[in-house]
């Protein structure tokens, strides 16, 4: 891979200082674990004249329970999150998703914030510069068409973070610091369905933390399909959260990753409340997932397989949680 281009490394000690530096260097990038950003920079996918290292900012590493919510700083590593006793006991989908990212060496460095802000991926984009040049590039980098859907006006690169769908079904909220101050946002509003602009972060804003409600009565799980048992990004990933009321579904939430340009919270599942998880309910889950996701040819594994496998994963998890809650 190519050497890193020349840049200045800045190491602020506070989030406020990081945001100030980001304003001072408009062509800068934040870096946390660097496991995705550095390879992308070396492939020429990302350029920056200054890199702002978030590793020294203590407030980003906070992980504690506050008012019946788990507060997780954006700089908490995925290894820490996967091993956290509160996450494992009360938010299993979150701990499982954190443990499912890449390999153990990545997780020791990679952070929650990095995984939530992960660049969208596509087999026409995550390539070396000569490879991309040979096909005249794509609209996400230096080209003008989407190689996956050549007549489409938009980019279809897939969001491939494992943790976002888990946090979506758990009802998480994000805290963002920007030049105008602090704001909170439901995680579902943090994402946009656009492979080139998949985050609703304004220029200069920094993801500070995530807050996840520790509500009673919920069971949750995350599972992904990948080519190998480790290291790989999800071909498709599904998080399910279930609250059972007696013999009936109280509430069921499903979110998918790897099959759209944003992690997708599946709509239309409210109709299942008050019903039992029978074949009709499982068909409903199948239908809503096919309606709510749009896998494209962003990976070497076929669209048809990912389209069929996503509801299979979701139904398997839903059945497992249903049985566990009986």
């Amino acid at each position: 891979m190519a050497a890193l281009s020349d840049f200045r490394l800045l190491r602020p000690a506070s989030a406020a200082e990081a945001v100030r530096l980001r304003g001072e260097y408009p062509a800068s990038r934040f870096i946390a674990g660097g496991t995705d950003l550095l390879p992308n920079m070396r492939r020429g996918l990302v350029t920056a004249d200054a890199v702002i290292d978030l590793g020294r900012i203590a407030e980003l590493s906070e992980l504690r329970v506050v008012d019946d919510r788990l507060h997780i700083g954006a700089g908490v590593t995925l290894a820490t999150l996967a091993a956290d006793p509160v996450a494992r006991a009360r938010l299993p989908a979150l701990a499982q998703a954190a443990a499912a990212v890449a390999g153990p060496t990545h997780r020791a460095a990679a952070t929650l914030g990095g995984n939530l802000c992960l660049d969208t991926r596509c087999m026409y984009y995550n390539q070396s510069e000569p490879w991309r040049d040979a096909i005249d590039n794509c609209m996400k980098i230096a080209g003008d068409t989407c190689r996956v859907a050549t007549k489409s006006p938009r980019c279809w690169a897939a969001f491939s973070g494992d943790v976002a769908p888990a946090l979506l079904v758990l009802g998480a909220e994000v805290q963002i610091l920007g030049p105008q101050g602090m704001r909170n946002l439901p995680l579902s509003e943090f994402y946009r369905d656009d492979g080139m602009a998949w985050l609703s972060l304004a220029p200069g804003e920094l993801l500070l933390s995530v807050r996840v409600p520790l509500a009673d009565g919920w069971l949750s799980a995350y599972e992904k399909l990948q080519i190998r048992g480790a290291i790989d990004f999800p071909l498709t990933g599904v998080a399910v959260a279930l609250r059972r009321t007696g013999d009936l579904i109280g509430e069921l939430r499903i979110a998918c990753t790897g099959v759209s340009s944003r992690p997708e919270l599946i709509g239309g599942l409210d109709a299942l409340a008050g019903k039992t998880l029978d074949d009709a309910a499982l068909s409903g889950i199948d239908r809503q997932i096919r309606r709510g996701t749009q896998p494209m040819e962003t990976t070497v594994i076929s669209v048809a397989y990912r389209r069929r496998a996503t509801p299979v994963l979701a139904k398997r998890l839903a059945k497992r949680l249903w049985a566990a809650s009986a």
Binding site: I31, V51, D53, P104, A108
Partner: peptide, 18 residues
């Protein structure tokens, strides 16, 4: 893979100054 404070890290994806 090298150890940074006893934890495994990928030296190819880590900035020396970090």
């Amino acid at each position: 893979t090298v150890l940074v404070d006893s934890r495994p890290r990928l030296a190819c994806s880590t900035l020396a100054h970090s």
